[in-house]
């Protein structure tokens, strides 16, 4: 059976450090404002007791990718293993995919004048290496999971701030933090 690769983002572990985002930027030598992975602050009360919580997302390699449908040149393909690949050679930089993606994932490269997005580092995966962001997270908070194989126990597909998953059926899943005890003065 074909694979269904997706990210599993452990918010319980994530310290919001942005190392994933910046290691990706560094490895792919992206322009200063471009991000293939983005770390975003979650609402403070996401688990009840107030905490600093973050979530790190990249392309969600959706089952039903809106980017692919929008693209006039057919630059997007979905591989057997589920990875949604953007072929920059074909891209004409119309930015429609960026509009159509519910997660605003594809970003314009102002120098190449083409779109750019997370490839799940498929060329690394293909030779048995982990994606940079997965390998470089100091907390090992990101994993690649074949969701056709396993459904990690406490993984959820929806979290606050994450757009309606019924649109494109993203493969990314999350592990939500467990609230700790707090004794606060205020």
């Amino acid at each position: 059976m074909a694979k269904k690769l997706g990210f599993l983002v452990n918010i319980e572990r994530c310290i919001g450090c942005h190392a994933c985002e910046i290691s990706c930027k560094s490895f792919y030598q992206l322009e200063p404002n471009m991000r293939r992975r983005r770390v975003q602050e979650l609402p403070e009360d996401v688990v009840g007791t107030p905490v600093r919580a973050f979530v790190s997302t990249a392309c969600n390699h959706c089952d039903d990718p809106a980017c692919k449908k929008a693209c006039p040149v057919g630059a997007y393909t979905k591989r057997e293993d589920g990875i949604v690949v953007h072929n920059q050679d074909l891209c004409i930089g119309c930015q429609m995919c960026g509009k159509a993606c519910p997660y605003s994932v594809p970003m314009f490269n102002p120098v190449k004048k083409k779109m750019d997005k997370c490839s799940m580092c498929y060329d690394r995966l293909d030779v048995g290496q982990l994606p940079i962001c997965v390998e470089k997270c100091p907390l090992e908070a990101i994993q690649i999971v074949d969701y056709n194989e396993v459904q990690p126990a406490n993984a959820v597909s929806e979290i606050p701030t994450f757009a309606d998953t019924s649109i494109t059926h993203p493969t990314t899943h999350f592990i939500l933090p467990k609230p700790g005890k707090q004794s606060r003065r205020f």
């Binding site: 290691s23 470089k136 997270c137 100091p138």
Partner: peptide, 11 residues
């Protein structure tokens, strides 16, 4: 094998 966010900005 990994650096903090700052270390990743070294280039």
């Amino acid at each position: 094998g990994r650096l903090c966010v700052k270390g990743n900005t070294y280039p």
